[in-house]
Simulated scan of single mutants.
Amino acid sequence: MMLKKQFQILTVLLITQLISGCSGYSSAVNSLGPETPTSEMRAQIEAPVDVAEGQSPFCVKPVEADPEMEPAMAALPPEPYRARLYFIFDTSQFTAESEVAAKQVFDEIKSRQIAEAIVIGHTDTMGSEQYNIGLSERRAERVRQELIRRGIPENIIITKGMGESELLVDTADEVVEEKNRRVEIDVR
């Protein structure tokens, strides 16, 4: 019975520690360990880390900008840009929503200095696999032509048609699903 009671107390303490996260670090460690706020052992273990009282060295801390690193940071390429455009069933024509979004997507791509644009076409599961490979290639080519028309060098655009092999929404064969009829654009 005594062992069960001790187990319950330890469980409550553990749950309390997990819920309190970083804020309860100091009091929980000190209530189970040394009587002083900082023991010699704790000071040796945490010596290379500057830890404020009540914080764990494992808590996220904001990093201050280093002025000497600003030129290097400015020279880094921008984050990759990813976009997805959708198509009308059995065509390489954008849906009404994607027709509107396409201008923003293409303007964003044009505004970047890019080394590579990957355009991958997809279809839903309606039709044969062979037909869908061709349809997905036509969709990717449509986006490629739009990028070239807007001044993106054609030698940095890679296209591929995946057909129905990488569905965004899993469906059975011969199912119409708008979210699977798409082109994914990845610009770096």
Score class of each variant (00 low, 15 high):
residue 174 E to Y: 08
residue 75 A to Q: 10
residue 67 P to M: 03
residue 125 T to R: 05
residue 143 V to K: 04
residue 139 R to W: 14
residue 32 L to M: 07
residue 180 N to W: 10
residue 78 P to T: 09
residue 92 S to H: 10
residue 138 R to F: 08
residue 89 F to S: 07
residue 152 I to K: 13
residue 76 L to N: 13
residue 143 V to Q: 10
residue 175 V to P: 02
residue 176 V to F: 10
residue 80 P to M: 05
residue 84 R to T: 15
residue 54 G to N: 10
residue 92 S to M: 10
residue 46 E to T: 14
residue 52 A to Q: 06
residue 125 T to Y: 08
residue 157 I to A: 01
residue 116 E to K: 02
residue 127 G to V: 10
residue 162 M to D: 00
residue 176 V to G: 09
residue 3 L to M: 14
residue 95 T to I: 03
residue 41 M to T: 11
residue 148 I to Q: 07
residue 72 A to T: 11
residue 146 E to G: 15
residue 34 P to I: 04
residue 132 N to M: 04
residue 60 V to Q: 09
residue 124 D to T: 11
residue 160 K to F: 02
residue 152 I to V: 15
residue 89 F to D: 08
residue 79 E to Q: 13
residue 160 K to L: 04
residue 30 N to S: 07
residue 72 A to F: 04
residue 61 K to Y: 08
residue 165 S to G: 08
residue 181 R to K: 09
residue 143 V to R: 05
residue 170 D to P: 15
residue 134 G to C: 05
residue 52 A to W: 06
residue 172 A to C: 04
residue 187 V to Q: 10
residue 106 F to D: 00
residue 39 S to I: 09
residue 135 L to F: 05
residue 154 E to F: 03
residue 91 T to S: 15
residue 26 S to V: 10
residue 152 I to P: 13
residue 54 G to L: 03
residue 183 V to C: 06
residue 136 S to C: 01
residue 34 P to Q: 02
residue 30 N to I: 00
residue 108 E to Q: 06
residue 174 E to P: 06
residue 140 A to H: 04
residue 76 L to A: 11
residue 59 C to F: 12
residue 88 I to H: 03
residue 26 S to Q: 14
residue 94 F to H: 05
residue 90 D to S: 07
residue 89 F to I: 04
residue 25 Y to W: 12
residue 69 M to L: 13
residue 2 M to K: 05
residue 21 G to W: 06
residue 136 S to L: 06
residue 167 L to G: 05
residue 22 C to F: 06
residue 17 Q to H: 15
residue 104 Q to S: 07
residue 30 N to L: 01
residue 69 M to R: 15
residue 20 S to T: 10
residue 22 C to E: 09
residue 12 V to R: 10
residue 40 E to D: 05
residue 168 L to S: 14
residue 146 E to C: 08
residue 74 A to M: 08
residue 49 V to W: 12
residue 50 D to E: 02
residue 40 E to P: 15
residue 137 E to Y: 07
residue 51 V to K: 07
residue 160 K to A: 07
residue 120 I to N: 00
residue 2 M to S: 11
residue 92 S to T: 03
residue 185 I to V: 08
residue 132 N to F: 01
residue 9 I to K: 13
residue 182 R to C: 04
residue 39 S to G: 06
residue 52 A to D: 04
residue 168 L to D: 14
residue 129 E to M: 02
residue 174 E to M: 12
residue 184 E to F: 12
residue 168 L to G: 14
residue 171 T to Q: 13
residue 45 I to W: 00
residue 188 R to Q: 14
residue 131 Y to K: 07
residue 16 T to L: 15
residue 87 F to L: 11
residue 41 M to I: 11
residue 19 I to L: 11
residue 89 F to L: 00
residue 104 Q to E: 06
residue 157 I to R: 06
residue 46 E to P: 09
residue 67 P to K: 12
residue 132 N to L: 05
residue 93 Q to V: 01
residue 37 P to C: 10
residue 16 T to K: 05
residue 127 G to C: 07
residue 138 R to E: 14
residue 28 A to F: 14
residue 63 V to P: 11
residue 7 F to V: 12
residue 185 I to E: 09
residue 38 T to V: 04
residue 76 L to D: 08
residue 110 K to M: 11
residue 117 A to Y: 00
residue 163 G to H: 00
residue 34 P to N: 04
